[in-house]
Design a protein around this nucleic acid. Structure first.
Lengths: 131, 131
DNA sequence: TAAGAATATATCTATATCGGTATATACAAT
DNA sequence: ATTGTATATACCGATATAGATATATTCTTA
């Protein structure tokens, strides 16, 4: 594995949070949106960036794209992810990310094939009626 | 210490070679030029980049600027440098760098206050006489 | 087949980075 | 004071990156 790709991947804070989250298990794009509070495009592009460097892998599950760390985790990548996690262990942001990740994974496991809960953005009440 | 700065520093191959070299002891700019085979400006700018992020420190010795890792090495930086070295242990480029670094440090120790040997670029023979 | 949901990509803009050339700075030696 | 040596900085152009908006793709469901 190329070191360049690893450091390029780790060069951005959002991507570091994504990779740390993935260390605890796979997640889909909407999960990342919810946990990281970032836009769909932003998440999708960072994931594409990581994919292009073989730092993550994907599979499709119905409408959802489920991301995970590579099945054959290169030792260099494993080492750097471990190092990163070691360094952010005390960081409240990363701690919160992990908690939320655990929560969402649990929720998905319970709700069956449904991946994401009804969109958090909308109040789930009414369509906004416009003249 | 900011993780951003660390990953910015490690984002470039030359800078990685510089940092690995410094793990074995201090070096001056001309040494880096000789070992890495890069231009003065290139080296100087990469070192400025590392300095701006507190990844290296400098002291002046006559005409020479001697670079070293920070006296108080932040644990995050130490961890990442160890991780990097672990990953490049087998890389012939890095191996050669370390050997050359050791050689140049020895040469300096022997030659006293003189830092660098007479410029390798010039044949040390004649000035080129031009009409 | 049409509509909707989840995700990806295209395009644009602003900014950072990298390397090069030219020039400035700081010190040493004469 | 002048010259030389080692290093740093200014400026320029090419390329990469990050975010935003708009649009395309892919699958599901009615």
């Amino acid at each position: 594995m190329k070191l360049d790709g690893i450091y390029e991947g780790l060069h951005d804070g959002l991507r570091r949070r994504i990779l740390c989250l993935l260390r605890n298990g796979e997640l889909c794009v909407c999960h990342f949106q919810e946990i990281l509070g970032a836009s769909q495009v932003q998440i999708s592009k960072h994931l594409a960036y990581l994919r292009a460097r073989a730092l993550v892998e994907v599979r499709r599950e119905a409408n959802w794209m489920i991301y995970r760390l590579p099945d054959q985790l290169a030792p260099e990548l494993a080492a750097h992810l471990a190092c990163l996690e070691e360094c952010v262990r005390g960081d409240p942001i990363f701690r919160r990310d992990l908690l939320q990740g655990r929560r969402l994974r649990g929720r998905k496991a319970r709700s069956g094939p449904q991946c994401c809960t009804p969109p958090i953005s909308k109040p789930a009440s009414t369509q906004l009626a416009r003249p």
